[in-house]
Write a protein that binds this DNA or RNA. Structure first.
Lengths: 130, 130
DNA sequence: CAGGATCCCACAGGATACTG
DNA sequence: CAGTATCCTGTGGGATCCTG
């Protein structure tokens, strides 16, 4: 509106720190984050069980991922200080707001992932030596 | 349905290779991928201009990101073999199906990112030495 | 103009051992 | 049970230089 010409911008106008796409992705795109959130969809779950349900995750990465999500206000940690302690995790209200967009992603995968795999196969065949 | 008890599963039932959340994220969560897709929202754009619009991207990463998206069938490459060549990129129909879920993510950021930042500030203040 | 080829490093993330 | 603490490696991505 302030510009009076129709020349496309020469100055960068897309940046990681501003683009809404990148900002969410920085939050949810660590290796285990999506799986941890997924495991919390049905409600609170204990640390140990989460570890057992998520294939291949180590305690270190489970803890680290949970801490990050806790720091971002997406996950809640509830401790019953018994011996041994009982620690349960759940989504916060803020965390639950992520479920809707995440489910859209899930739906996209169901609908389109096979096409991606087919495209990859075609691409690889095209650009492999022959 | 096949199980007759209500004991929660002990076997891992959440895995990277299956979870729909992770699978899309593997596609779109590289550092520059979201920004490249974003730059293609309004239609075809040339290589050079894309590079100029996306702040901080190098030619290497721009090319690499575009190649990946092309391999996944999400982006199309159109060459006019003049000298110098004119190369324009655009989303494929498959790539365009990603826009809807991406926009949901964008909307989530608009609505909730400030709450994430507040949560981080609180968390950091709580767990800093004092 | 639109890349390809190299070199290099930081850091995400794995393996293993220990603990309140 | 629910974590820490270390050590270590692979690789995503940056910097730089070259080319049809």
């Amino acid at each position: 509106m302030t510009s009076t010409n129709s020349i496309k911008p020469v100055q960068p106008d897309i940046s990681i720190s501003v683009c809404g796409y990148s900002k969410v992705l920085e939050i949810i795109s660590n290796k285990w984050t999506a799986l941890v959130i997924y495991s919390l969809e049905d409600g609170a779950i204990r640390y140990g069980e989460m570890g057992r349900r998520i294939e291949g995750i180590s305690k270190k990465m489970l803890t680290q991922t949970l801490r990050q999500l806790e720091r971002d206000g997406l996950v809640q940690r509830d401790i019953t200080p018994s011996i041994p302690p009982i620690v349960a995790y759940s989504l916060t209200p803020l965390g639950e707001t992520l479920l809707q967009p995440m489910r859209e992603l899930n739906q996209w995968t169901r609908d389109n992932y096979s096409l991606v795999e087919k495209a990859r196969a075609t691409y690889d065949q095209t650009y492999t030596q022959e």
